[in-house]
Nucleic acid binder design. Structure first.
Length: 138
DNA sequence: GCCAACGTTGGC
DNA sequence: GCCAACGTTGGC
């Protein structure tokens, strides 16, 4: 833990399958179902204490909250070729940040969440993380 | 629900 | 190792 080597990520989910509200109720969960090699590599790069934003990819497309990585990548018991990580609920954004807002933003329009539509686990810089928080705060 | 863009597969 | 064909994703 600690700020020095912490990375930041965005995790996509379909709220019908698993939403931020579900995570809030569960307090923590295993993040599974990633079936994309680049996304898997990103999962494997996660460290305990890394911060994640949760993005809803269906319905209103928006970033809705934050979570913390509590366990680094381990094989998915349902499919050992893939991996899960564990995360814990951290916060609900005061105001969700819409995909459209990201697209209009000078720097956020270039993050991989926007550019690489199909990547379900996206790295993000601290600067972009802060910019999103700023948008959520209003 | 459509379809463009992207990722994966498989034949060569 | 290339690339066409196919399947899937995700924005609209």
């Amino acid at each position: 833990m600690g700020p020095f080597f912490m990375s930041h990520w965005i995790l996509k989910t379909e709220p019908g399958t698993y939403s931020l509200d579900d995570l809030k109720k569960d307090r923590s969960t295993f993040w599974d179902g990633v079936r994309n090699y680049q996304a898997r590599n990103n999962l494997k790069s996660m460290k305990k204490g890394d911060q994640c934003m949760i993005y809803h990819s269906v319905g209103p497309k928006e970033i809705v909250g934050t979570a913390t990585v509590t366990k680094t990548a381990y094989p998915d018991p349902k499919d050992m070729d893939w991996v899960n990580v564990d995360i814990a609920f951290e916060s609900e954004l005061k105001k969700p940040v819409k995909l459209a807002e990201l697209k209009e933003h000078k720097t956020l329009k270039d993050i991989s969440l926007v550019r690489q539509g199909r990547l379900s686990v996206c790295p993000i810089t601290k600067g972009d993380w802060d910019a999103i928080l700023k948008l959520s705060n209003a």
